[in-house]
Amino acid sequence: MTSTSVRRNKATGLVVLLAGLVITGVGYAAVTSTAEASVAMYSQTQIDQGKQLFQQGCATCHGLAAQGSSEGPSLIGVGAAAVNFQVATGRMPMAQPANQAPRKVPVYNDDQIAALAAYVASLGPGPAVPSDEDLNTTDANLAEGGVLFRTNCAQCHNFAGHGGALSNGKYAPSLMNATPRQMYEAMLTGPQNMPVFNDKTLPPAEKRAILKYINELQTAPSPGGLALGSLGPVTEGIFIWTAGLGALLAVAVWIGAKVR
C-alpha cells in the first residue's frame, strides 16, 4: 500500500478524526487535572448499578435521564464530587421539599453512593471525588488557613464554623460534623446556597489550608472554658441574664430574707 492509497482509504478520515479527538480529549483532561479522568475510576457495573439506584431514588425530581425537572436541577456535569457530598451527608434524597436540604443520616451505603457517583459522572464531565492526596494537610499552613477561612467562609459559617443564618430561612450549616472530603467537595461544587470555590479562585493548596484550620476548630479545646456554642455575644448575653444574674439574685434574696 502506498502512502497515497493510505491517505485515500475510506477509513483514514475516521481514524484521523478519532485520533484528533482522543489527543484533544486527553490533553484537555491533563490540563484540567482530575476532573474528567474520574469516569475511568468507575467500572461499567458500578455505572449500571448507579443508574438503577438513580431511577428508583432520584429520578422523581431529577428526571429519568438526570436531565432535571421543575422539582430538581439537572445533574448532567455536576460530577461525582457533588453526588458524594449530597448523598454521603444524607442531604439527598430530600425528605420533603424545603428551603434547604438538612444534613441527616445517609440513606445509601458507601458502595451505593459510589455507584450513584459513577452513574452521574458517566453523564458528563464534572469534579471528581477528591483523593486522599487532595486531602493531605500535612504541609498546609494553619495560620494561612485561618486567614482564608475568615476571608471566604466566616461570613456565612461563623468565625468558629458553627454556621449562620442566610436570607429567607436558608442557612449555612455548622461545619463541626463535616469530614474533610465533604468540605473539599462542597468547595468544588457549591452545594445549595454555597458559591463554587473552584481551583482557580482557591487553589488546592489553599483549600487544604482551610481544611487544616477547620480541623483545628473541630478538635482544639476551648482555651477560655465552656464556649457557649461559639455564637458570639448573644449567648454571652443570655448567660449573664439567666445563670449570672439568677445566681446573684438568689444570693440577694437569701441575704435579704428576714431573720425570724
Binding site: 475568615r150 466566616a154 449555612a172 455575644p233
Partner: peptide, 11 residues
Amino acid sequence: DQVTAGSQPDW
C-alpha cells in the same frame, strides 16, 4: 474585608 456570621454587639 472580613466579617463573621453572628457579628453582634454586647447585649
